[in-house]
């Protein structure tokens, strides 16, 4: 549904995208994961026809974005990082504006507006100006407006940035429901847990290209930073465990050991077996998977090393 090959874009002498390749099959959720300035928003802008590429081939819904921008626009919906609602209009008016621009009949427009207001829990606020909405409500209205035209491909640029935890969970549920309807979604995020929750596949963006791609599990396993934390009742057991495991760092004050591990079932079983064999009693065991910082630092370091 979306294919990107060798995409390049520079602003002046600042290279933002340096040979980006992506392939998003129809009906899936694809996450672009990257820190601020990694080129996520630039990618979405090029894919949604807002910016032209310097080089590379970009096809969205079967159309070339450079040669057939209108055909691309007819197939996509975009919800950006910055609220794309008219704040002086009410929620219902914003949706009807979209219905009018999609040439829906008055009756059809009203029907779809009503359904979306209900689906996005905005019915009570429908007659209030969007400027009075909370951040989460504005984001929901924004996405509802994107859906008025029933797009085949939806771009969500950092859909939950700036939302409170409740707003984030609501947004996640909405995205999951969309996927159930069969649309293709490309979302950008700087949160690994968000990509993890929503995406079928994740591409990690760094220095203007994809530095790793796979499912969330694949990515997390590939990189260091994950570890198992073992807590003991007394220093003797801690020392005993350290002598058995060797490759671990100790935190004497907390009576804990930090054992590097990819967190897979197999690695855990091996670890537990080794402790069991020496009859070392562990008070508490917890698995820590790497967060975005770990992923990102590890992957970018790797890339520098292989250059």
């Amino acid at each position: 549904m979306i294919t990107v090959t060798g995409l390049r874009k520079s602003f002046g002498d600042q290279v933002v995208l340096d040979g980006l390749d992506l392939n998003v099959p129809g009906g899936t959720v694809f996450a672009l994961l990257g820190a601020n300035g990694a080129g996520k928003t630039t990618t979405v802008k090029i894919l949604s026809t807002l910016l032209s590429a310097d080089a590379g081939d970009v096809r969205v819904a079967g159309h070339d974005v450079a040669r057939e921008p209108d055909a691309v626009r007819a197939a996509i919906g975009v919800t950006g990082q910055f609220s794309a609602v008219d704040k002086l209009l009410t929620g219902a008016e914003n949706l009807r504006l979209m219905a009018d621009l999609h040439q829906l009949s008055k009756a059809e427009g009203r029907k779809r507006t009503g359904r979306l207001l209900e689906q996005f829990d905005l019915t009570d606020a429908a007659k209030k100006p969007a400027s009075t909405y909370s951040g989460g409500m504005q984001r929901r209205l924004d996405l509802a407006m994107t859906l008025v035209g029933s797009p085949q491909v939806i771009f969500l640029d950092e859909p939950t940035t700036g939302l409170d935890p409740r707003g984030r969970r609501d947004m996640w549920q909405i995205v999951r429901d969309l996927v159930a309807d069969g649309v293709t979604i490309l979302l950008t995020t700087q949160y690994l847990d968000e990509a993890d929750e929503l995406a079928d596949r994740i591409a990690v963006l760094g220095q203007g290209r994809v530095i790793a791609e796979g499912t969330a599990e694949e990515l997390k396993r590939r990189i260091p930073g994950g570890h198992v934390r073992l807590r003991f009742a007394d220093p003797e057991r801690l020392d005993a465990a350290l002598s058995v495991l060797g490759d671990a760092s100790r935190d004497t004050d907390a009576l804990a050991l930090r054992v590097p591990s990819d967190g897979s079932l197999h690695a855990l079983k091996t670890l537990i077996d080794r402790l069991d064999a020496q009859a070392i009693v562990v008070d508490e065991l917890s698995v820590h998977t790497p967060d975005l910082d770990d992923v990102f630092l590890a992957l970018t370091d790797q890339k520098v090393a292989t250059r």
């Binding site: 807002l50 626009r73 007819a74 996509i76 975009v78 910055f82 609220s83 794309a84 609602v85 704040k87």
Partner: peptide, 13 residues
Amino acid sequence: TEGIIARFRTMHI
């Protein structure tokens, strides 16, 4: 300065 203009630009209108 409003985000809605960017939205209009991505629409087939």
